[in-house]
């Protein structure tokens, strides 16, 4: 048989049944605002900490939603709670409260 070069690549699909988005859900109960994020990225663009290390609130929310809890948390570890992201967020999301609660959830998982 002639090789046409086609092959099945591994799926990139996220299996929602296997995703562990428990942290997201837990935080959403305390700060429902987290569900309002539409990933515009304003917060990451203005972030104070991102000059030193990749800190991105936007990515962290996306990652949490997909169950990549560790990566999400590592993305917030250097946040200084400076509050710039609150002021730029077009959705008026209480970002700092979400960050604190995500990091607290991590402390509890330890």
């Amino acid at each position: 048989m002639t090789e046409f070069g086609f092959k099945l690549s591994q799926s990139n699909r996220i299996d929602l049944d296997e995703t562990d988005n428990s942290v997201f859900k837990k935080v959403a109960i305390i700060v429902p605002d987290i569900k309002l994020c539409f990933n515009c990225g304003s917060c990451s663009a203005s972030c104070t900490s991102t000059h030193f290390k990749r800190v991105s609130f936007r990515s962290a929310i996306l990652l949490l939603n997909r169950g990549h809890n560790k990566e999400a948390i590592s993305m917030l570890k250097s946040c200084m709670l400076c509050g710039k992201c609150i002021l730029v967020c077009p959705r008026g999301i209480d970002t700092r409260n979400i960050i604190i609660n995500i990091l607290k959830a991590e402390e509890e998982m330890k």
Binding site: F52, K77, S78, C79, M80, I100, L103, K104, E107
Partner: peptide
Amino acid sequence: INNGAISFDYTPVK
């Protein structure tokens, strides 16, 4: 009491 235990990491910050 509530938030004092959160460990932030500022090593790369300078």
